[in-house]
Amino acid sequence: MAHSDGHADHHIIPFKTLANVFGALVVLTVLTVAVAQVDLGPLEIPVALGIAIAKSALVVMFFMALKYDKPVNSMVFTVGTVFVVVFLVFTLFDTAFRGDIGNVGVQTIEEEEAELERLREREPDPEQLRVTPSDYGQDGTGTGSEDMNDQ
């Protein structure tokens, strides 16, 4: 068809297709509500997101007609979506793992004093630190060194 004909060669999505897509969207909405009433544990968010992604895929492909459209529009949409994923994932690389590496030291005087107290509690009894006979003074019964072995 000659392109001077304006819109004559545009794809007209049939009424039946649009109605079917709308029906599918309603069914998926009911499904996502029904699934939310069941306790799925850790799968809850992935399932809800999966249904939402399926619904938006239907809207984008049929209502927004990307399926029948020029590929350049699909490219714009895809690149944009990829950047949303990059945004989300790279932010989570930071926020989801904060504190795991423990590279942040104590920051307040209270924390520092608590840390010192904790270290003081871990300090072993001087009794148990005796190693050489001179550490035992006069009697030298040797019980101290047995204590050491228990450690």
Binding site: A48, L49, A52, S56
Partner: peptide, 14 residues
């Protein structure tokens, strides 16, 4: 509509 499709489960359901 698509924005709401994501807002609804994230805010109301999960």
């Amino acid at each position: 509509d698509i924005i709401w499709i994501f807002l609804f489960p994230l805010l109301y359901l999960v």
